[in-house]
């Protein structure tokens, strides 16, 4: 069902953990739907110098979060903003059809953390960037 690359990231996820006092932080997803993702960014001179994540979710959710951190570490904020879920999926050699929604979460996580960075530092928020939303379970 999953590609070798996905399984590799599930087995050995890159950049797991947290950054104390991050410059940007985002949390997206919904525990009721079975996935929640946290992103921590350390930013210096417009460059993402460090990134960590934590994910509650299936194999695809873990692999896409891990992959997206690898893809944007060392990149400029503009480059990070341009990373799409399609690129993440492609880098993982694809995902099963029913798991495509998980890759959206990785893109949203990065964008939420960047929104947090721009707004906390009173910088103009690029168009289309939104605040992150985690929905509480309504049980």
């Amino acid at each position: 069902m999953y590609s070798e690359k996905v399984m590799d990231h599930v087995r050995n996820p890159r950049n797991v953990g947290e950054i104390k006092d991050p410059d940007g932080y985002g949390m997206v997803g919904n525990p009721c739907c079975g996935d929640v993702m946290e992103m921590f960014l350390k930013i210096e001179n417009n460059i993402i110098v460090d990134i960590k994540f934590r994910t509650f979710g299936c194999g695809a959710a873990i692999a896409t979060s891990s992959m997206v951190t690898e893809m944007i570490k060392g990149k400029t904020l503009e480059e990070a903003l341009n990373v799409t879920n399609k690129q993440v999926t492609k880098a993982l050699d694809g995902l099963p059809e029913q798991k495509m929604h998980c890759s959206v979460l990785a893109e949203q996580g990065i964008r939420a953390a960047l929104y947090d960075y721009y707004s906390k530092h009173n910088l103009p928020v690029p168009e289309g960037l939104k605040q992150s939303k985690t929905v509480k379970c309504a049980d």
Binding site: Y2, M7, V10, R11, G34, D35, F56, G57, C58, G59, A61, I62
Partner: peptide, 14 residues
């Protein structure tokens, strides 16, 4: 609690 079933299964599968 706090973990998702499929990720447990994949790790067991390994």
């Amino acid at each position: 609690d706090y973990v998702e079933g499929e990720s447990i299964l994949l790790h067991l599968d390994m």
